[in-house]
Simulated assay, not measured.
Amino acid sequence: MMLPEDDHDLGFVNDLPRMLGRRGMLTMMGGVGLTAIAADPAAALDCVALPWETAGPYPADGSNTRRGQTVNALTQSGVIRSDLRPSFGGMSVVADGVRLDLELVLQSSEGCTPLVGHAIYIWHCDTTGLYSLYDVPEANWLRGVGLSDAEGKVHFTSIFPGCYDGRWPHIHFEIFESAEAAVSGAASLLTAQIALPEADCAAVYAQDARYSNGTRNLGRITLARDNVFSDNTDAELAQQMLAMSGDPVAGYRGTVTIPVGFTADRNTAGGPPPPGGFLGRWLRGGPRE
């Protein structure tokens, strides 16, 4: 199935000024050129640069294909957004699940200072482990880009991710210097993943029937055996673990600080993709990432 394309769709670059307005654009552009605002002394704790991780087989960032066609959500109009549950850019399917409000704080690991005006692209699976544009080609839900404010904060509303066989529950992300860098195909400053706490995952999967395979799959995996998180230090795992409050009925709020090490090793444990790409590995029985 061919993914929809509109000749008049100017995508990410067109969304940016429309969303922020002239004053917002000037503020963001000026903020990027200024020295980062000093962190609150009460919050000036040591921060651990997150390790680079694989983007997995379903990034939809222009780096891979589905059935021979490049998959790139970043060029679609509407990708800059805060509510990730609906589809965008001409698609109408909506993802359903336990509500999850996210606050992501982007920092430089040097001094734990906020990264202002940076773009973060996040994506994750639905309640049963499916990814839009790949497993569900008629949808692009649970994907989106946000821009960090003067405190380095980005907010999204999404759903609690499910747990598919072979992977610990997680959220993927890529950080870029700017919105323009993301849409141009520039290399990310950091590609990594956020882990979800076991107790909250167990509660959601046990109490909500929409997560029909979650309890079973969670029981088959641990952080220590996960093919992405298993080689991280305790400090790195603590840094990339989402701190959560809430419950399966009212929904959850999750926060995490993401320190970027600009001189970090960009090699990932997953190594280069096998012949046929990440999707080919999955079709041959390899792990989904």
Rank of each mutant, 00 (worst) to 15 (best):
P273R: 10
F160K: 04
L26D: 15
N232I: 02
E151M: 11
W123P: 00
Y131V: 03
G286S: 06
I175W: 01
R220C: 10
F176A: 03
T75P: 00
D96R: 13
N72Y: 07
G89I: 06
E198M: 09
G30P: 03
D247R: 03
D247Y: 06
S178W: 00
T268I: 14
W141P: 00
L115S: 01
A55Q: 10
Y58S: 13
L26A: 15
G68W: 11
V204H: 02
C125Y: 00
E103Y: 06
L34P: 01
L279W: 05
L3F: 06
M25K: 02
V249P: 00
D247S: 08
V116W: 00
I37A: 12
H8M: 15
P51R: 11
E138W: 05
D101S: 15
W123C: 04
I159R: 03
N72C: 13
G129Y: 02
N64E: 14
Q239D: 04
A60G: 06
P4A: 11
E151G: 13
Q69N: 11
Y58H: 14
R81D: 02
Q69L: 13
D265C: 10
A43Y: 05
C163W: 04
I194H: 03
A202D: 15
G62L: 09
R225I: 08
I159V: 15
M1I: 11
E5T: 12
A209W: 08
G89C: 07
L189Y: 01
T157Q: 12
M1D: 11
A187C: 12
P41G: 07
T65C: 12
N217R: 10
L26N: 11
G129K: 05
A181Y: 02
S184A: 15
L84A: 06
L133Y: 03
W282M: 10
L16E: 03
G90K: 12
G219A: 11
I80E: 00
T233Y: 10
P137S: 05
F160N: 01
E236F: 10
D46W: 03
E53Q: 15
T233Q: 11
A243Q: 14
G246F: 04
